[in-house]
Design a protein around this nucleic acid. Structure first.
Lengths: 355, 355
DNA sequence: GTGAAAGCGCTAACAT
DNA sequence: ATGTTAGCGCTTTCAC
């Protein structure tokens, strides 16, 4: 913050007006090309760097966006943060990152504190009450990811179709009793996944047992694994890959083999690109969601809030090594034909991310 | 950015001077308590939020720090980011996050762009040339993490002692031929780990084979696993947990059992709290490093650069499930006595993080 | 095509 | 204990 040259100093040095120097950076087309060149040369030489605060104060545009996540250490978020940051950078925007630690109060405070100093906010997996969210959306430019409150600008990573594909797959393998092991109860994604499992199961005569890992950590899931194994299910769909791994850790300790004894499908595809064993899961395009959010904030910069929108990106089932036929070579009942041809949610075998 | 009340408006409303309103927030002790209360009440009612840009411009203090990492999606960084962000938040600082994508050019540009608008920078695992780093350190307030350039302010996560403990452990289990599978070649941590392995091995008649996963991804490591297995080693130390997992993925595919056929030790303890199987690894206190860095930046805020310092946090060996005795019940040679009592780097069995 | 001057919202002397 | 004033570095009318 010391000794940095300012526009005024540059101007003095060159014997021209500050406004000319300013224009050389912001509206070069208004200036004689040679003037622009001269200014740029001098700026470079002097090591001039524009002061964002002054610019922001003068223009009212902050040149930054805020990104608020519940827990950056949860592997779901880093790729999202990365994509948002990269895209924002392309657009000349900086990003403020804040972590709410899953605490709604902290989240609310962070939103209020950040809002005035940024062009807009991206709030991921908000744990705030719907009423509060709507309120915030009214007065701030904010894009929500994975939180579905009507009349707000929201981007949803929809895994319902892919879950149906997963269930179809499991069903084709002979599984009839499956477990859904949920995560954070306040999470939109959790509710969505849970009801996708319920609805499909009801429609196709699958029996589903419900479990919930709260908090949604490896350890909580591991602690649950015995009850899951004892429940008589032959397959489990986990809220996310961390929970899937926790379950598998518990299964391994108990001598339950995956996928021979039990099939496991995770969700979010956060770990398979860095972790062994190769987990079957549902890949979700967090990168696209992040970019859409950044784009939304950078569009029509004047407005005081974003107009309501509901944008969906669908996930896809990725089959790797943790699903297999039900063990006691039981009755591979014929399924309704449509089950063999899922209409949505493509299936693929691969490793890698598409963000 | 619209219709937000300013200090001047508040002042007018209350019939007092703007400076009084300002002081109510920044130096309340200079004011009559009732005045402070009055201002606060009015501010609350009007929804007043201080404008950080104006404040920054006026005071020359940005109220923010910058955090630059090579790849936020690499699991080593999120806990560090989280700790930095939390601590900064406690200190009333916001944090700008940027990801260099492992690209030195991008890193250099990001540093230049960020520097003027923050109180200081934390640069983690810099890939820049030492000469450039020294240059930057001269003109910016910057704390480096895991990059050891003399005369800069740097914080190092030292794993050498813990690696010696790991090697001692392996050696005690009968292992004589071990592999070191390195990561990013420009990484300070990689060089440090590599030479720790080399030095210890030389001193204790262990044979070490070198491999390098470049890039340091799961897939690159997996591709390496066959050569590693074929090299005749009975244990491997991996640069990090991701590489360890990649190796294990390859081993599993090839029918090589861990730890029966091969012992594996990872590094950084980034995955074991969310991932199965339970990897033996070296835990590293990224939280402490991050907090130290933030603290360094927030101390003596006047200066234009940080005075040189070299701060070390030592890692600890964490034994979990991926190490065991060498398979063909071979000669458990007596070791030099000192090997049984490592002088540094404690050993513990546990799960969880200490950040 | 360029200069002069005002002002963004806030803080910090300097009064009083 | 509070008011007055100037100014942080930049952009932006408005002149020329």
């Amino acid at each position: 913050m010391t000794g940095r040259p300012t526009i005024t100093q540059l101007a003095a040095e060159l014997g021209i007006a500050p406004s000319t120097v300013s224009r050389a950076f912001t509206r070069p087309n208004l200036l004689k090309p040679e003037t622009v060149a001269m200014v740029q040369k001098a700026a470079e030489a002097a090591g001039y760097v524009p002061n964002h605060h002054a610019r922001a104060l003068s223009t009212g545009r902050a040149g930054a966006i805020g990104l608020i996540v519940p827990d950056i250490a949860n592997p779901f978020f880093p790729p999202l943060v990365r994509a948002a940051q990269n895209y924002a950078s392309d657009l000349g925007l900086s990003v403020f990152l804040a972590d709410t630690d899953e605490d709604p109060t902290r989240e609310d405070r962070l939103i209020s504190r950040m809002a005035p100093q940024v062009e807009g906010l991206i709030v991921v997996s908000s744990r705030l009450a719907s009423s509060r969210i709507r309120q915030i959306a009214d007065s701030q430019r904010v894009a929500f990811i994975n939180r579905d409150v009507p009349e707000t600008y929201r981007i949803l990573l929809d895994t319902a179709a892919a879950i149906r594909s997963g269930l179809t797959h499991l069903s084709g393998l002979g599984h009839r009793r499956i477990a859904y092991v949920g995560g954070p109860p306040q999470s939109w994604a959790n509710k969505q996944r849970r009801s996708a499992v319920d609805n499909f199961s009801k429609a196709h005569a699958l029996e589903v047992m419900h479990f919930s890992a709260d908090p949604g950590t490896y350890d909580a899931a591991k602690a649950l694994s015995d009850s899951v194994a004892a429940s008589g299910v032959t397959a489990v769909i986990a809220f996310d890959d961390v929970i899937a791994h926790g379950l598998m850790g518990g299964f391994a300790a108990a001598g339950v083999d995956v996928p021979k004894d039990l099939s496991v499908i995770g969700c979010d595809d956060t770990l398979a690109t860095e972790t062994f064993p190769a987990l079957s899961t549902i890949a979700v395009n967090v990168g696209a969601a992040a970019r859409r959010a950044v784009a939304a904030l950078s569009e029509n910069p004047g407005s005081t809030s974003l107009t309501g929108a509901r944008i969906i990106f669908e996930g896809t089932l990725v089959l790797r090594g943790t699903t297999g036929p039900v063990r006691p070579a039981s009755n591979p009942l014929t399924l309704e034909p449509e089950l063999d041809h899922p209409s949505t949610g493509s299936v693929q075998a691969r490793r890698g991310s598409d963000s």
